[in-house]
Structures are given as structure tokens and as C-alpha cells.
Design a protein around this nucleic acid. Structure first.
Lengths: 208, 208
DNA sequence: GGGGTCATGTAATAGGTTACATGATTCT
DNA sequence: AGAATCATGTAACCTATTACATGACCCC
């Protein structure tokens, strides 16, 4: 499924959504992206924004409203949403909410090739990952609490709650994985280590 | 963190890893990617593979070994891993296992802008998402079971187990989210609906 | 023996990221 | 007043995706 959009970059989705509120010039979008914290959810970089705006204009989803200039600053072009644009926004959002997309997180790739590292090292690395995951969770939790304390409605933080849920799931997974490698009876570590020509002592079954 | 790699595409990681086993020509890599099912974990497309191979060669991680030709088929160039390549593979893998990377899943973006849709619709869409999530979980579960039945060691399926864990977490999250919208006392639906100028009947508190 | 599709690669195009440019403002 | 940073945009470069090309093999 997942139809091919004329403009596929998710930045474009944010732009469309901002323009439903009021016309804007690119720099203001840029500012909003960062201030409003949406840059945590959508990959953002200055250059791409101008590109995306162009693409949206070419596709007829937005149009130039006026070009103003203050003093000697560069001109700022203000854009407005068209009907087509409003439609695209809804349609796209609907699709994203309804259909889970197949994605390629880096950790998945790493896991699929992880046998290339020796198990002793993997266990160590996974341990460090657990720490970092805990830090990230704490950070998000902090962000959520602070923002809520400022009177923001929790609806505007769902994406952070979601991220948090995923991080927790990942942490549990990693813990289980470590145990599976280390388990003295049924652990995978032994075969794995042999395969690497590593000393297998750590994984040796204790025949008492 | 996350240092800048000379070749950043994860396809390159797979290529490096294949080449630790034996020299190969690009088409064989392509084949392996698909047969071995790694294309589920690493975004793959024919064109990009040749590009990545070029980049790896330019970076000195692999070198041409020989160029053979069978009959009138196009030439096939066989590549070997260099020491630098072997080193890059380990270093990269280590990083990916140790450091969780900040990523931008589509659903996160959608959630961050979801207030742009009216709550009644959102609930419906989320319901459909739940179904699809269940289907995907079933599919992965099936894949895992079949593969295990074929005698493959579970270590080579960790990435699928991981995916599964994430899908489960997402499902729970979505269920909770739906409840939060619908909850008759504390639900978010009401304010949200008003904000959209929707009839709020569904969310009206029943003052009996 | 003509129509698919497999094997194998190159070239054209579009997309995204980094670097550059330059007036304005603020800091010390 | 010079340094740093903000505001605003363009251009150059690199990456990735699609399209094109062509001989071989297989099916009916």
C-alpha cells in the first residue's frame, strides 16, 4: 500500500500542518519546528526545508502569497495552503495513522548481523546500550513532566509517550537477549564462541 | 556521538559482512540479501547496491579481485574485503549495538501532528491500525516458527524477535491511547472535538 | 520461436545535506 | 569596535532511486 506522494519527505507534513493555522515564510516554519519541539519527531535541517517548500509549491499544495522585505534583510516569501494542500494533509495523516509502515531501524540491521561479533563482546555492548536506553527514558520522562507542569495538554505529548513505550520494550528485549546468551544451561554463548574460536570457558556448563 | 562513516548506508554493512565469508560479485550479494532474508532488515534496492559497492571500493574497504565473464553475460567483478574493511565492519557494528540512535519513525511524526484530525476519526483509524499490527505480528511469528522448524539457530532470528517486541509494545500503546480519547470522565475526546467544531455528543459526560 | 523473467550492469534524474554568503543584532 | 550569533537564502555536492539496456534461459 502506502501510495506514492508527490512530496514524500515528512518535513512537508509538518509544513502543511503549520500552514493550516496561518500563512508563513520558511524561516518562521524553521523556527516553529525547533521551538515547538517538532524537530524531535521529524528529521529537520535548514536546507531540506527550502527544498521541501519548493516541492510543495511545484505540486500545487501551497502558493506564494507575497514577498516582503524588512530593511536590508533578504526577502521573505510567505506561503499559503491551497485546498489541494489541505486535502493532502488529511489524506496523508490518515494513512500514517492507519497503516503501520515497514521501516528499517539501525538496531534491526545490527541484530541481523550481530553474529559477526564474538558473544563476550556483544554482552558487554548490550550492557552499555541498556544504560543509554535508561538515560534516554529518563530524559523523555523529564521532558514530559516539565511540559505538563507548564499546563500543556497531554495530547500534545503523545509522540513522546510512544517513544517512551518503545524504549521500554527495547530495554526488556535487550535484557532478555543478554540472559539468553549467558544462560549456563541453554545459553547461545557457547556455540557462538566456538564459532569465533574464542575461549568458551565463560559459557562452559558447570558439571558439578 | 555516532561518528560519520565514509559510507553510511546500512547496505554497506551487509556487504562487508558477506565479504568476511568469501569474495563475491555484486549480483551474488543481491541474491544473498534476498534469499537470506536480510532485505527485511536493511533497505535494499538493486541500484543502490552497485552504488554502495563503488563507495566501499573508493573508501578502500573492498577491492576488485578479478573480472570474469561467462559466455556472453555481462562481466562480473568479484570483490574482496581489505583489512580496513574488516576493521570498519567491527567498529560500525559495535557502535550500532552500543549506542541507540535517534530515529524518525513515521508514526512518531503522525502522532505529533495528530490533533489536526478530529478525534472520532482518529479513534477509527487507530482501530484499523490495531488490526494491521496484529496481522504483522502473526506474520512474523509464523516466519520465526517456520524457520526454527527448519533447524536454524534462534540467534539468526533475533532481529525478528526484536521487531515483534516493538510491535507488541506499539499495540498496547495504541490501545491505551484509544481509551484515553474515549474515556467518559477524563477523556481527551471532548475538548479535542470542540476544538474541531465537531458534535461532542459521543464524549458528553453522562450526568445521570 | 516469441514472450516472460533472470542475470547483470550503466545512466539519468531526483532528492537531501553541507557549505557558502551576507546584512543585522547583540554581547563584551 | 570586533566577535559571535541570528536571520535568511542560494548553490554545490553527494546519495539514492528509477529507468534503461541486453544477452541468456525457460515455458508453452
Amino acid at each position: 500500500m502506502a501510495k506514492k506522494r508527490k512530496v514524500g519527505n515528512l518535513l512537508a507534513l509538518a509544513v502543511l500542518s503549520y500552514l493550516t493555522r496561518e500563512p508563513m515564510h520558511p524561516y518562521e516554519m524553521s523556527r516553529t519546528l525547533r521551538d515547538h519541539g517538532d524537530a524531535r519527531s521529524v528529521k529537520f535541517n535548514h536546507g531540506s526545508l527550502y527544498m521541501v517548500v519548493q516541492q510543495l509549491a511545484r505540486a500545487g499544495f501551497i502558493v506564494e502569497q507575497e514577498t516582503t522585505r524588512e530593511g536590508q534583510r533578504p526577502e521573505r516569501t510567505v506561503y499559503v495552503l491551497t485546498d489541494a494542500g489541505r486535502h493532502e494533509l488529511r489524506d496523508w495523516l490518515r494513512e500514517l495513522v492507519e497503516e503501520p509502515q515497514h521501516e528499517y531501524p539501525q538496531f534491526v540491521a545490527a541484530l541481523s548481523l550481530i553474529a559477526a561479533l564474538p558473544p563476550s563482546e556483544v554482552v558487554e555492548l548490550l550492557g552499555r546500550r541498556l544504560q543509554r536506553l535508561a538515560e534516554q527514558r529518563a530524559e523523555i520522562r523529564g521532558l514530559i513532566d516539565n511540559t505538563l507542569a507548564g499546563g500543556v495538554h497531554p495530547l500534545f505529548l503523545v509522540e513522546e509517550e510512544y517513544r517512551l513505550a518503545l524504549l521500554e520494550a527495547e530495554s526488556s528485549f535487550v535484557e532478555r537477549f543478554i540472559e539468553q546468551i549467558n544462560h549456563p544451561e541453554t545459553g547461545w554463548g557457547r556455540l557462538w564462541a566456538e564459532f569465533h574460536g574464542e575461549p568458551t570457558a565463560t559459557y562452559e556448563r558447570q558439571e558439578s
